Simulated assay, not measured.
Amino acid sequence: MKNPIFSKNIQPNFSKTLRSRVNAYFKLHGKNRNANRIMKVKTIIMLCLFFVPILVLSSGIVTSTVLLFALYIISGFGMSGIGMGVMHDAIHGSYSKNKKVNTFLGYTFNLIGANATVWRIQHNVLHHTYTNIEQADDDINAPFFLRFSPHAKYYWLHRFQHIYVWFFYGISTLSWVTTKDFVRLKRYYDMGFLNKKGEYPKTLASMIAWKVLYYSYALVLPMIMLPFSWWIVLLAFISMHFITGLMVSIVFQIAHIMPVNEFPLPNKEGQMNANWYAHQFATTANFSPNSKLMYWFIGGLNYQIEHHVLPDVCHIHYKKLATIVSETAKEFGMPYNVKRNLLHAIWDHVQMLRSLGKKPVLIPVEIQHNEF
Rank of each mutant, 00 (worst) to 15 (best):
T129H: 11
A209R: 14
G300R: 04
W230L: 06
G113L: 00
N115A: 02
S229V: 12
G270P: 14
F14Q: 00
D137E: 03
T203K: 08
N13G: 13
S172E: 04
P4M: 14
S239F: 14
T178W: 05
A116R: 07
F51N: 09
V260H: 07
A90G: 13
K330E: 10
N286I: 01
N3K: 12
I238C: 07
I133V: 12
H151D: 15
D312K: 11
F51M: 13
L204N: 02
H88V: 01
L71D: 03
N275A: 04
K16V: 11
G30N: 10
G93E: 11
Y215E: 07
V62A: 08
L293F: 10
M223A: 01
S175C: 11
S15F: 12
K359F: 05
L185F: 02
Y295T: 14
S355G: 09
H158E: 12
A90N: 05
T103V: 14
E262M: 10
V361P: 01
V177R: 10
T131H: 08
F104W: 06
N341G: 03
Y154E: 10
T43M: 14
F332E: 01
R21D: 05
A70T: 13
F237S: 00
G106A: 06
I140R: 00
G81N: 01
L146N: 06
R19S: 15
A152S: 12
L353I: 08
I163C: 00
H158W: 04
I305Y: 05
F50I: 05
G78I: 09
I298F: 04
P222A: 06
W210P: 10
A274C: 03
I112S: 06
I208A: 08
K99H: 09
P360I: 07
K358D: 09
V248M: 06
P266M: 05
N98G: 14
I140G: 00
P360K: 14
N3P: 04
V22M: 10
E327K: 14
M258K: 00
A136W: 00
M223T: 03
I363Q: 14
K186L: 15
V325I: 09
Y130A: 00
H317S: 07
A322N: 14
A152N: 08
Y295H: 09
V66L: 15
M39H: 14
S149V: 02
D137S: 01
S59L: 11
P227A: 13
P4C: 06
I305P: 13
I54F: 03
G170D: 05
F69M: 12
N9K: 02
N341A: 10
V260W: 06
A152I: 08
L293Q: 06
H256D: 04
F287C: 04
N34T: 15
K27G: 04
K16P: 11
I73P: 01
V260L: 13
Q368F: 00
T323R: 09
T129G: 02
T328N: 03
S96I: 02
S216Y: 12
F167V: 12
V313C: 10
W231P: 07
M87F: 10
H256F: 02
S249E: 11
H151Y: 06
T17E: 15
H123R: 07
F104K: 05
G300A: 08
Y215N: 07
G299I: 00
T203C: 12
